[in-house]
Design a protein around this nucleic acid. Structure first.
Lengths: 365, 365
DNA sequence: GGCTAAATTGAGACCGGTCTCAGTTCTGCG
DNA sequence: CGCAGAACTGAGACCGGTCTCAATTTAGCC
């Protein structure tokens, strides 16, 4: 009980002005630190403000300035450590620049993402940082640029939208991972991803025999890039059908079965590239539960330097994602746009780091 | 270009009203879905709205209603998976109830927490969910209740603040962990926490020989509870000085050294209880790097069912934190308070689950 | 058809800041 | 001392919704 705030009504500039014996506009200037105010008046106003327990109302400020000093961030799932790291990076940059962060999870669903965007736009965020649920659904984002709010994609890219983007060098990363295995002598190498193809039924992506390139038809630009890098490396190594052991849809339920199928039978693969740490995790357990040993029987490498990958026996060779930097840089770029930066939209590509550990050896026999 | 939003000015209810040929108030009623509007007029207004590309302005709405439909969440560090899970739980509950989430990281610093609170209060959030950086600094939170905003603590508790709280049953959890080790025959058991004592110098917490109880003097109610449970179990087992092997301040830098000291020498402990997954992680590596084996040489148990604890060799026996539920329930309670629930403040205690794995065996010799 | 009650609509105040514009007070300097 | 120009202050419009209150229309019923 400081004599104010009975929960009934907030103290306003008008109240402060009255107590300080000045006009509302003057008090506002002293409090908001803009315009010109004499030192004497400023002091009197500030005294009155603290005596009354005045708290600026950012909502009212947004109302008249049209700027909310809030930026929206939409990630697939904050529980995913890569997104958590990116969010931390974004939060640090935002805080330093005086912005608040409004967080939403899209659950990787286009529909949930759309609702989140509507909410953020209604809240009049000054801009948005988004890891898009789908690289092939620009519709959700057109409204944002239409509303005149800057937008920066991170981790994934969506073409056909007037927005900056910050992504990791996934193609190169996949190439390096494949090369590690190829150099160890592997020829039958699987690539396993949790993501599904666009049409959950048919496999739209394909290997173009003529151009000798992977033609992605995937929802995710990340996976598309990685598979492109992966198949490219295999192709350069003279492997006939680079897509032979590429497996999609290895979600929580299916990962185990998919991995088991890959590592058993006549044409069992000798190495696996896991597209994210979830897949690595399931692959690791599935292989071990099958009584197979890593790396003696099967080599395993993957994306994401999740904490557990360094502590298993053997520790797993991975490509680490610059997650925190992804979030920080995209937020940095967003703020620059918010504050007036012009110029063409750019795609920033951040390097990935290869961390070689003990999960790779020469193939058996 | 839908004919609107040149980035110059948003479409407002007044614009919609003009186009529909009705008064502003009527258009607002049709759009905001309140009051009474005839079906005919409603349709006309909605047509006008979509033709113009109208987007409600939540800032203006907050201005006049005094409710922002936003709730603030302040965690130590969103990169910490327990906080990420709690945040996800909070986000789901908030979303379902139509609230936005404004996220801040306190970095476990009281000062950063205070700034975050000021920001949230300025933004006029309808309420706050906070994992307090310190259980012994109620000052930060008094302003919140003073401003008439409901507040719910989660994970940690702060006494002397008019707020609900949702915490895990840390005392019981610690007791169970200690009992697992005691029943396996251990007598020299260490408890290692990353948190420091209040005064980083002296050890304020103490064992009261008379009452045979642990008297905490810790910043963290969580660690205090856990040590209380731990020492209680040891005391019941007839162990003379339950605090003998309690070690605080095992942060990233010191954890390794502290663990090394504990497991070597004449009075080396035979088992370690790690206060969080970070400590477990460092302990696991330190022990292994020392050439010692778990559980043959040292038994190791800990708090937090981090993903990696299930995949090490051996997998680690842990107490799992109900992190997601902590976030979800506290947000649930907050929303009820926001929407008018009265009654005395309550502390909800959520059970922890013991997951027995392979990191415990009888002590050597 | 006429009367009352209910439903619908319109006008304008209001929320708490910012901002423009005009009026007033200070300065500096001839 | 007088004056121009700068510094400061005050009054009131404005942002885009919601909400109250009065006016008007519609519906229900004898």
């Amino acid at each position: 009980m400081s004599g104010h705030g009975d929960g009934l009504r907030d103290v306003t500039v008008a109240d402060v002005a009255a107590r300080a014996g000045v006009a509302k506009a003057t008090a506002a200037r002293a409090l908001g630190d803009y315009g010109a105010v004499s030192a004497k008046v400023r002091a009197r106003v500030q005294d009155a403000a603290s005596a009354l327990g005045y708290r600026p109302n950012a909502v009212a400020r947004s109302m008249s300035t049209g700027r909310s000093k809030a930026i929206g961030i939409i990630v697939g799932d904050i529980e995913n450590s890569a997104f958590a790291q990116a969010t931390r990076g974004a939060a640090d940059v935002a805080e330093a620049a005086g912005y608040d962060l409004i967080l939403s999870n899209s659950r990787e669903e286009v529909e949930a993402e759309r609702k989140a965007i509507d909410l953020h736009l209604a809240k009049r965020v000054d801009g948005l940082v988004i890891a898009p649920a789908s690289s092939t659904h620009p519709a959700n984002f057109l409204d944002i640029v239409d509303a005149g709010r800057p937008l920066v994609f991170f981790d994934r890219i969506v073409h056909g939208v007037e927005a900056d983007a910050v992504v990791a060098a996934n193609r190169e990363g996949a190439t390096r991972l494949a090369d590690v295995l190829l150099q160890a002598g592997h020829r039958r190498i699987a690539y396993v991803s949790a993501l599904d193809d666009i049409s959950s039924g048919g496999f739209r992506s394909r290997w173009d025999a003529e151009s000798r390139e992977f033609v992605p038809g995937l929802q995710s630009s990340v996976i598309a890039e990685r598979i492109t890098g992966f198949t490219g490396a295999l192709q350069r190594a003279g492997i006939g059908d680079p897509l032979a052991y590429v497996r999609l849809g290895a979600d929580e339920e299916n990962a185990r079965r998919i991995v088991s199928d890959l590592v058993t039978g006549d044409d069992a693969v000798t190495a696996i590239v896991a597209s994210d740490s979830m897949v690595s995790f399931h692959a690791f357990r599935a292989i071990r539960d099958l009584g197979l040993r890593i790396p003696d029987d099967i080599s395993l490498v993957g994306f994401d330097n999740a904490p557990w990958t360094s502590v298993t026996e053997p520790a797993i060779t991975v490509i680490s994602q610059p997650s925190r930097e992804l979030g920080a840089l995209s937020t940095q770029i967003l703020i620059e746009r918010i504050e007036g930066a012009t110029g063409p939209m750019r795609v920033q590509v951040l390097p990935q780091e290869l961390i070689e550990r003990g999960s790779v050896s020469r193939p058996r026999g």
